[in-house]
Simulated assay, not measured.
Amino acid sequence: MPVNSVNTNAGALIALQNLNKTNSDLQTVQNRINTGLKVGSAKDNGAAFAIAQSQRSTVSSLDAVKDSLSRATSVVDVASSAGEGVSDLLTQMKEKALAASDTSLDTTSRNALQNDFNSIRDQITKTLTNASFNGINLVDGSKTEITALANADGSSVLTIAGQNLSLGGSIITLASDASFATASSAAALLTTLDSSINSVSASLAKLGTSAKAVDNHAEFVGKLQDSITTGIGNLVDADLAKESAKLQALQTKQQLGIQALSIANQSTSTVLSLFR
């Protein structure tokens, strides 16, 4: 038989414990709804929070990878544009040399062609000198290669080989002071120009392949970043539909708990009737 006591109201204590539990659960649900997170701190779920933080760091690091790949793309694009320009200039030089190789040409006409040839030749050097992006030039011989970050911890890189298109080099064998004064000397340059044009085309193909590789990896990094972000969401995001249903239930339970506590607090007043 329960003891009637004015000092200890067991019913009120139990009702208060249940109400406090309901209020705590209600606060948790309200926090999840407000933040959209079921794991907003290490206190909510230490293991899930630690994993999420680690993956957030990876996502942030991948931003740096994407920036590095973007810079590499820009460098290669500038180099390719310069290479295409050089190829066009070499073609023009071949046209001038071929025209000058005509033995029926008079000296005045050949001199005019020579001046044009020399001007185009010098333009190649100017083109290569100005083919820089962010201080990096892949076609003037100043860089043999560049690298771009490939993963979040920097342990892997993409390497892009430079293509030295300078006059008198291994790709463009035409000398930097190449010129002609006679039909025979003009004809002698044609083979060198053909070889140089073909070599520049091969170099452009290599730059194009490198550019495609960088673009493909940048696309992969973007997809990887999205996948990791989705995984983080699966760990820490709250199901708002579920939390909304919980909120309604806990609010109702809170009201009932307040009523139960009120009834329990009134129970001790029945003891007074024993002394009337």
Rank of each mutant, 00 (worst) to 15 (best):
M1F: 15
P2H: 15
V6P: 04
L13K: 10
T22N: 12
T22G: 10
Q27F: 02
T28W: 10
T28C: 07
Q30H: 02
Q30L: 04
N34H: 03
T35R: 10
T35M: 01
G40H: 06
D44V: 05
A47Q: 08
Q55E: 15
S57H: 01
V59L: 00
V59S: 00
D63N: 11
D63G: 07
A64I: 02
V65H: 00
S68H: 07
S68Q: 00
L69R: 10
D77K: 03
E95P: 05
K96N: 07
A99Y: 03
D106P: 13
D106A: 13
T107N: 13
T108V: 15
T108S: 12
S109D: 12
N111F: 03
D122T: 05
L128R: 02
L138E: 08
L138R: 08
V139H: 02
D140K: 04
D140Q: 15
I146A: 02
T147L: 01
S156H: 05
S166N: 14
G169I: 02
I171M: 03
I172R: 01
T173C: 09
L174Y: 00
S176L: 07
T182W: 01
T192G: 14
T192D: 00
S195D: 11
V214K: 13
V214Q: 11
D215Q: 07
K223A: 10
L224T: 06
T230E: 05
L240N: 05
A241D: 02
Q248L: 09
K253A: 14
L261N: 08
V271L: 10
S273W: 07
L274H: 10
